[in-house]
């Protein structure tokens, strides 16, 4: 008999989107669950189990934003053999990582006005900044995406089962490799924004070459080029391709160099004004994994 795999599913600070993706996965898993090959031992969205002793695999979504997240991440890490950072938030920090452009005090007073920052004892306190899991605990595997496509989740689970290493699960393919739009090896001479210049409905030309800032050339494949297929530039939710042994910083640097600088803008220093929101464009999901993960003051 095959050994039963025990599974934990949970989310820290996130938008619940990853949970939806994980729930979608349950259906295809049902068969294996019925056949007693997989057992879900702890998953607050599905079960009322309040704790567990040990599990083989934890699919942990969300990032570490407050003291409760930190405690929980450590608690789960201790009890599982394989921790899988699930979704952009857990893997690289996620979209709310852009909040790291403000100090936590500025964030609180920006939203709630002039309040007393002393937090009541029973409420988890905000940490200084949003962190991906890897900054606090050892992570064994990752599932990219905001939220991850259920196929991507299944692919990683399958890879784990077959004993592959993380970089063996994902080849260094990019969204461009999955994108049906046509490239002509041209570079654009101005930056277009979807909000000002909507993409032509019937277009079959590469969006980047038209001038829209599409991060497809750097972004890890797996979503099936969901966005560019519908005429929306890729914003990099799968994270950038990171070569084995390479740092996130290098992957970010390569993205800026290859995509940002591909625009033939003159004088060259105008590129920053043309892009308008440079940091938000290139680091929408990955800022908390950069070597400066938050504003320094």
């Amino acid at each position: 008999m095959v050994k039963k795999i025990s599974l934990v599913i949970d989310e820290l600070t996130g938008c619940e989107g990853c949970k939806m993706s994980l729930l979608e996965l349950i259906e295809p898993l049902l068969d294996s669950i019925m056949r007693d090959e997989i057992e879900i031992v702890y998953a607050p969205i599905l079960l009322d189990a309040e704790s567990f002793d040990h599990a083989d695999i934890a699919l942990l979504a969300g990032s570490i934003r407050n003291s409760e997240d930190l405690e929980k991440a450590r608690w789960i890490r201790e009890k599982v053999d394989i921790l899988v950072a699930t979704g952009a938030c857990a893997y690289i920090g996620g979209i709310h990582g852009l909040g790291n452009l403000f100090t936590w005090r500025d964030l609180v007073s920006g939203v709630f006005g002039n309040v007393n920052h002393e937090v009541a004892d029973e409420i988890p306190s905000l940490l200084e900044y949003t962190k991906p899991l890897w900054r606090e605990v050892n992570v064994d595997y990752f599932i990219p995406g905001c939220p991850p496509n259920p196929d991507t989740i299944a692919k990683v689970l399958d890879g784990i089962k077959r004993g592959l290493k993380p970089h063996e699960i994902f080849e260094a393919r990019t969204v461009c490799d999955e994108c049906p739009l046509k490239r002509e090896e041209k570079s654009a001479s101005k930056v277009l924004r979807v909000i000002d210049t909507p993409v032509e409905q019937s277009t079959d030309r590469c969006l980047l070459e038209q001038g829209y800032l599409c991060l497809g050339p750097s972004t890890l494949a797996g979503c099936g080029a969901l966005c560019p297929k519908k005429g929306v530039p890729c914003i990099g939710c799968y994270g950038f391709v990171v070569k084995p042994g390479e740092s996130f910083d290098n992957a970010i640097a390569r993205t800026i160099a290859s995509i940002g600088a591909s625009f033939k803008i003159e004088p060259p220093e105008r590129i920053d004004d043309e892009i308008l929101d440079t940091i938000g464009t290139f680091m929408k999901f990955i800022l908390p994994s950069f070597f400066i993960p938050r504003i320094i003051k």
């Binding site: 452009l101 160099a257 940002g260 060259p268 590129i271 920053d272 440079t278 680091m283 950069f290 504003i295």
Partner: peptide, 17 residues
């Protein structure tokens, strides 16, 4: 090319303080 790349990374670094 160098100036474009430099401008972008400088913008990111200064945004971060």
């Amino acid at each position: 090319v160098s100036k474009r790349r430099f401008t972008l990374i400088k913008s990111i670094l200064t945004s971060l303080g």
